[in-house]
Amino acid sequence: MATIKAFKLASLESISDILGETNTGLTGTQISKYLAECNIYDPQLNSTKRKRLYDALALKQNNDKCANNILNFLKHVMCPSRHIQNQEWFFTTRNQLNIALAFKGLELTESGDFKQTYHVKTFSEAEERAQNLRKTLLDRKIHHDVLTFCKAELLVDNYFHAVFEATKSIAEKIRIKTNLTSDGGILVDEAFSYKGKIPYLALNNLTTESHESEQKGFMNLLKGVFGTFRNTTAHAPKITWEINELDALDILSMISLIHRKLDKTVEAKKIYEGYL
């Protein structure tokens, strides 16, 4: 690997904050293990995980006068085969790291390697994109639950992060309305399918063939969205797709439609019991 110019200390701090986050970051045991496996000395000057990581990485980079071993450490930690049982953590953490890496013109790919990407210099670039996106979506009268994801920090790297997070909000709304705990296509089947049982949620009273077709069509739409932008399997995740502003607008508009439909769903049990 060619010599990689050292990270700014602010970027190292952001990386350490992500990996050492109290609730969702690496455990203290994992930090010790990964630092040792990467031959990075752990001075253990601080008790908090994020400060401990920062001390170790900053000291290593200062001694090396380059960032090569910092990137090797990130590759080691984010090796996909290490997170087969916790893919959600991998995707979420990867997205967060890529925001910090974008300031260096780098992206951590789905395979755990690095590639050159669009280089940003300031958050103002992302802020401008976020404002433009939000204004256009407001003109389209987009659902308020979607507007939450038009944030500068999600657009530093590319528009995919806004789409990815907005898609996650669909599953979260379904879980809130049903108290189910699954995800993706399984969640859709559990919430809306009525093969031999009353579904949790219904778009209508399910009394006609047309009503049943609408219910099935909505299920297929949800599965298509999850399969394309929310795929948590190890085989074909689409996290690396490049999405431009026009793509983002169209996809977020579709997610807005889904949110409006979900807001109008009713408990199917009440339909069958004659309450609706």
Rank of each mutant, 00 (worst) to 15 (best):
V163I: 15
R134Y: 05
E153M: 00
C150V: 12
L154N: 15
A166P: 03
A162V: 05
F160T: 12
L154S: 02
N158M: 04
R140H: 13
L138D: 10
Y159V: 08
V156Q: 02
R134P: 00
I142R: 00
E165F: 11
A152D: 11
K135E: 11
L138R: 10
Y159L: 08
S169K: 06
E153C: 09
A166K: 08
K168M: 02
A162Y: 03
A166H: 02
S169N: 07
Y159R: 01
T148M: 10
F149G: 03
H143K: 06
H144V: 13
K168V: 09
L138M: 10
N132W: 01
C150W: 02
F164E: 14
R134V: 01
T136M: 07
K135L: 09
H161G: 06
V156F: 04
N158P: 00
H143N: 14
A152G: 12
T148S: 03
L137H: 01
L154E: 02
V146S: 05
T167H: 05
A166M: 09
T136L: 06
L147I: 14
L154C: 07
V163T: 07
A152L: 04
K168D: 01
D157W: 07
A162C: 08
V163D: 00
H144L: 06
L133C: 07
F160C: 01
K141S: 12
L147C: 11
D145S: 15
E165P: 01
L155A: 10
K141P: 02
H161I: 03
L154V: 04
T148G: 01
T148Q: 09
H143S: 06
H161P: 00
K168R: 15
F149Q: 14
I142P: 01
R134H: 03
L138C: 14
L137D: 03
R140L: 14
F149L: 05
L137P: 03
H161A: 14
H144R: 06
A166R: 04
Y159P: 07
V146K: 03
F160S: 13
D145L: 10
R140V: 04
E165I: 10
F164R: 12
R140E: 07
R140S: 08
F164G: 00
D139L: 13
L138F: 05
H143W: 09
L138H: 05
A152P: 04
E165R: 13
K135V: 06
L155V: 11
C150Y: 09
T136R: 13
T148D: 10
I142H: 04
H144A: 12
R140T: 11
D145N: 15
L155H: 03
H143R: 08
L147E: 06
T136Q: 08
L137Q: 09
T136N: 04
V163N: 00
A162H: 07
T148F: 12
N158E: 08
K141N: 14
A166V: 12
E165C: 11
R134E: 09
H161Q: 15
F164W: 15
C150S: 12
D139E: 13
F160I: 15
D139Y: 13
Y159G: 05
D139C: 09
E153H: 15
Y159N: 10
V146E: 03
A152T: 11
D139W: 10
K135G: 00
K151T: 13
H161K: 11
T136I: 11
N132Q: 13
L147V: 13
R140I: 14
D139S: 14
F149N: 08
T136A: 09
